[in-house]
Simulated assay, not measured.
Amino acid sequence: MDVLFDFSKLSLVSLFCVSAVMKARDLNPLVAHLTLTLPLGGRAARTLAMSTVAAEAAVVVVLFTAPRLGFAASLVLLTGFTVHLARVLASGTATSCACAGSSDSQVSAIHLIRNAILLAVAAAGLVMAPHSHSGPVVMNLIIAAPAALFGVGMLRLDEMSRFLSPQYTRSS
């Protein structure tokens, strides 16, 4: 149980950490996405984008300091992101999700599937949090690489699915 708890925590930490850093490096794709998909002006969209980065960074810290609260906060953020992406997909608006900064991938069902998986990971962590404690440092080091790969892989699932699709062709 502790291994799954640590895997869930480290997966979400890597996901939110990379996402926050990528967005913070260039906030413009997220601001453009929010301006296009929500009834916001540029200033409000920028404020919401900065708040999103801050919330993701806060979740990273809270997952380490108060895991139960961190998993709950992850569920809230992921639910909000999922509802927003479902609304964008239903509207037919063609835009990048800007989930990790700039991307050529348009919002698609892949984003909803990814978020459903991440919601399950966060829910599992929340359920296990009262009964689990982080294992020994050595165990965390062993779990860290696969958890980080899973977390970042989930963040980039849209690009990976496009790359692995039969329609993918390399330009020479």
Score class of each variant (00 low, 15 high):
Arg156Glu: 07
Leu27Pro: 01
Val121Met: 05
Met139Val: 15
Glu56Lys: 00
Thr93Met: 10
Thr93Phe: 14
Ala129Arg: 02
Pro39Arg: 09
His33Leu: 07
Val18Pro: 06
His133Thr: 12
Val31Thr: 14
Leu30Thr: 07
Gly135Glu: 01
Arg162Ser: 12
Pro29Asp: 03
Ala86Gly: 12
Leu27Phe: 00
Met128Asn: 00
Thr65Ile: 11
Val60Arg: 02
Met22Val: 10
Val107Asp: 10
Leu112Pro: 13
Thr52Gln: 03
Leu149Pro: 15
Ser8Gly: 03
Val21Asp: 00
Arg68Val: 04
Ala66Trp: 07
Pro166Asn: 03
Arg68Cys: 03
Val88Arg: 09
Ala49Thr: 10
Val127Asp: 00
Val76Phe: 02
Arg87Ile: 09
Ala144Phe: 15
Gly125Asn: 00
Val21Pro: 02
Leu27Asp: 00
Ser74Gln: 06
Ser171Pro: 10
Ala73Gly: 15
Thr35Arg: 06
Leu27His: 01
Arg46Val: 00
Val31Gln: 11
Phe81Pro: 08
Thr79Gly: 10
Asp104Leu: 09
Leu149His: 08
Thr37Phe: 04
Ser103Asn: 11
Ala49Asn: 08
Val18Asp: 04
Ser19Lys: 11
Ala145Asp: 13
Ile142Trp: 11
Ala90Ile: 08
Ser105Glu: 14
Lys9His: 08
Met139Gln: 14
Ile142Met: 09
Leu10Arg: 06
Met128Val: 00
Arg162Ile: 12
Ser108His: 02
Ala129Pro: 14
Val127Gly: 01
Ala58Leu: 12
Ala124Asp: 03
Ala44Thr: 15
Ala120Gly: 10
Gly41Asp: 01
Pro29Gly: 06
Ala86Ile: 13
Val83Arg: 02
Ser132Cys: 12
Ala55Met: 08
Ala120Ser: 11
Met154His: 11
His131Met: 05
Ala86His: 09
Phe81Leu: 13
Ala90Asn: 09
Ser103Ala: 14
